[in-house]
Simulated scan of single mutants.
Amino acid sequence: MADPIEVHYTPDGDDWSVVVMGRGQTLTGRAPGLIAARDRADQLVETIAPDEPGHKTVVHLLDGDAVEFTTAYLTARLAKTEPDKPDAPAAGETPEKAATTEAAAEPAREEPPKPRAESEVATPARQPAEAKEEPANSGS
Protein backbone atom coordinates (compact mmCIF):
# COMPACT_ATOMS: atom_id res chain seq x y z
CA MET A 1 0.00 0.00 0.00
CA ALA A 2 1.28 3.44 -0.95
CA ASP A 3 1.68 6.19 1.60
CA PRO A 4 -1.42 8.35 2.03
CA ILE A 5 -1.62 11.76 0.45
CA GLU A 6 -2.15 14.49 3.05
CA VAL A 7 -4.19 17.61 2.41
CA HIS A 8 -3.78 20.45 4.92
CA TYR A 9 -6.42 23.20 5.00
CA THR A 10 -5.78 26.65 6.50
CA PRO A 11 -8.41 29.40 6.67
CA ASP A 12 -7.19 32.71 5.24
CA GLY A 13 -9.94 35.30 5.72
CA ASP A 14 -12.87 34.16 3.57
CA ASP A 15 -10.55 31.99 1.46
CA TRP A 16 -8.81 28.71 2.24
CA SER A 17 -5.24 27.66 1.51
CA VAL A 18 -4.69 24.03 0.53
CA VAL A 19 -1.38 22.17 0.73
CA VAL A 20 -1.29 18.69 -0.81
CA MET A 21 1.72 16.51 0.09
CA GLY A 22 2.54 13.06 -1.20
CA ARG A 23 4.63 10.99 -3.60
CA GLY A 24 7.57 13.33 -2.99
CA GLN A 25 5.64 16.41 -4.14
CA THR A 26 4.01 19.39 -2.46
CA LEU A 27 1.36 21.42 -4.30
CA THR A 28 -0.54 24.45 -3.02
CA GLY A 29 -3.79 26.11 -3.96
CA ARG A 30 -6.40 28.60 -2.78
CA ALA A 31 -10.17 28.63 -2.97
CA PRO A 32 -13.09 30.74 -1.76
CA GLY A 33 -14.77 28.66 0.94
CA LEU A 34 -14.13 25.22 2.36
CA ILE A 35 -16.23 23.32 -0.16
CA ALA A 36 -14.33 24.88 -3.07
CA ALA A 37 -11.06 24.18 -1.24
CA ARG A 38 -12.01 20.49 -0.99
CA ASP A 39 -12.69 20.43 -4.74
CA ARG A 40 -9.36 22.15 -5.41
CA ALA A 41 -7.63 19.54 -3.22
CA ASP A 42 -9.10 16.76 -5.37
CA GLN A 43 -7.67 18.43 -8.47
CA LEU A 44 -4.24 18.71 -6.86
CA VAL A 45 -4.35 15.05 -5.73
CA GLU A 46 -5.00 14.03 -9.34
CA THR A 47 -1.94 16.04 -10.37
CA ILE A 48 0.22 14.23 -7.82
CA ALA A 49 -1.05 10.73 -8.61
CA PRO A 50 -2.72 10.80 -12.04
CA ASP A 51 -2.05 7.23 -13.15
CA GLU A 52 -2.37 5.47 -9.84
CA PRO A 53 -4.76 2.54 -10.32
CA GLY A 54 -7.51 1.92 -7.81
CA HIS A 55 -8.36 3.95 -4.78
CA LYS A 56 -6.04 6.68 -3.54
CA THR A 57 -5.80 7.16 0.22
CA VAL A 58 -6.17 10.86 0.97
CA VAL A 59 -6.25 12.30 4.49
CA HIS A 60 -7.85 15.75 4.82
CA LEU A 61 -6.63 17.71 7.86
CA LEU A 62 -7.71 20.96 9.48
CA ASP A 63 -5.28 22.07 12.19
CA GLY A 64 -3.69 18.61 11.87
CA ASP A 65 -6.98 16.86 12.72
CA ALA A 66 -9.06 14.77 10.30
CA VAL A 67 -12.14 14.86 12.55
CA GLU A 68 -11.98 18.65 12.76
CA PHE A 69 -11.83 18.85 8.96
CA THR A 70 -14.77 16.47 8.59
CA THR A 71 -16.85 18.45 11.09
CA ALA A 72 -16.09 21.78 9.38
CA TYR A 73 -16.70 20.33 5.91
CA LEU A 74 -20.03 18.74 6.80
CA THR A 75 -21.13 21.90 8.57
CA ALA A 76 -20.35 23.91 5.43
CA ARG A 77 -22.15 21.38 3.19
CA LEU A 78 -25.25 21.27 5.36
CA ALA A 79 -25.43 25.00 6.06
CA LYS A 80 -28.63 26.69 4.97
CA THR A 81 -28.30 29.06 2.07
CA GLU A 82 -31.44 31.09 2.86
CA PRO A 83 -31.80 33.11 6.06
CA ASP A 84 -34.57 32.01 8.39
CA LYS A 85 -37.58 34.22 9.06
CA PRO A 86 -37.19 35.94 12.40
CA ASP A 87 -39.24 34.26 15.13
CA ALA A 88 -39.50 37.38 17.26
CA PRO A 89 -40.74 40.77 16.10
CA ALA A 90 -38.14 43.44 15.43
CA ALA A 91 -37.32 45.91 18.17
CA GLY A 92 -40.23 48.27 18.77
CA GLU A 93 -42.62 46.15 16.71
CA THR A 94 -45.70 44.64 18.29
CA PRO A 95 -46.52 40.97 17.60
CA GLU A 96 -49.73 42.09 15.85
CA LYS A 97 -47.81 44.40 13.51
CA ALA A 98 -45.27 41.65 12.80
CA ALA A 99 -48.10 39.25 11.93
CA THR A 100 -49.69 41.87 9.65
CA THR A 101 -46.37 42.48 7.92
CA GLU A 102 -45.82 38.74 7.43
CA ALA A 103 -49.34 38.29 6.09
CA ALA A 104 -48.82 41.12 3.61
CA ALA A 105 -45.57 39.54 2.42
CA GLU A 106 -47.14 36.15 1.76
CA PRO A 107 -49.32 35.56 -1.30
CA ALA A 108 -53.02 35.23 -0.59
CA ARG A 109 -54.22 31.68 -0.28
CA GLU A 110 -57.73 30.54 -0.94
CA GLU A 111 -59.19 28.45 1.80
CA PRO A 112 -61.29 25.47 0.82
CA PRO A 113 -65.00 25.82 1.58
CA LYS A 114 -65.97 24.61 5.02
CA PRO A 115 -68.52 21.80 5.19
CA ARG A 116 -71.95 22.96 6.34
CA ALA A 117 -73.95 21.43 9.11
CA GLU A 118 -77.06 19.59 7.93
CA SER A 119 -79.30 22.28 9.37
CA GLU A 120 -77.54 24.88 7.22
CA VAL A 121 -77.92 23.02 3.95
CA ALA A 122 -80.34 24.89 1.72
CA THR A 123 -83.35 23.01 0.55
CA PRO A 124 -84.78 23.79 -2.84
CA ALA A 125 -87.62 26.30 -2.74
CA ARG A 126 -90.97 24.73 -3.32
CA GLN A 127 -92.42 25.62 -6.63
CA PRO A 128 -96.09 26.63 -6.75
CA ALA A 129 -98.34 24.07 -8.32
CA GLU A 130 -98.19 24.37 -12.04
CA ALA A 131 -101.00 26.40 -13.54
CA LYS A 132 -103.19 24.55 -15.96
CA GLU A 133 -102.71 25.59 -19.46
CA GLU A 134 -105.95 26.59 -21.12
CA PRO A 135 -106.16 26.65 -24.83
CA ALA A 136 -106.33 30.13 -26.21
CA ASN A 137 -109.56 31.03 -27.96
CA SER A 138 -108.87 31.50 -31.54
CA GLY A 139 -110.65 34.59 -32.64
CA SER A 140 -114.30 35.00 -33.21
Rank of each mutant, 00 (worst) to 15 (best):
A2I: 03
D3I: 00
D3F: 01
E6A: 08
E6P: 00
H8A: 10
Y9K: 01
T10N: 09
T10G: 05
P11W: 11
D12L: 15
D12F: 13
D12H: 14
D14M: 01
D14Y: 05
D15K: 02
V18D: 01
V18W: 02
V19H: 02
V20L: 05
V20I: 09
V20D: 02
M21P: 00
M21V: 12
M21L: 07
Q25W: 10
L27W: 03
T28F: 05
T28S: 12
T28N: 12
G29V: 04
G29Y: 04
G29Q: 00
P32F: 06
I35L: 11
A36M: 06
D39R: 08
D39K: 00
R40C: 06
E46I: 07
E46M: 09
P53K: 07
P53R: 05
V59W: 03
A66P: 04
F69I: 03
T70C: 02
A72V: 09
Y73S: 03
T75N: 09
T75E: 12
R77D: 05
L78E: 11
L78F: 10
L78N: 07
T81H: 01
T81G: 04
P83K: 14
P83F: 10
D84A: 15
K85W: 15
K85V: 15
K85D: 15
P86N: 13
D87M: 15
D87V: 15
A91C: 09
A91S: 15
P95R: 07
E96D: 09
K97T: 14
A98T: 13
A98V: 07
A99H: 07
A99V: 10
T100D: 15
P107S: 13
P107E: 14
R109I: 11
R109H: 10
R109S: 09
E110N: 12
E111P: 08
E111S: 12
P115V: 08
S119I: 12
A122Y: 09
Q127F: 01
A129G: 05
A129S: 03
A129H: 05
E130P: 08
K132D: 15
E134W: 12
P135D: 14
S138R: 07
G139M: 04
S140Q: 00
S140M: 00
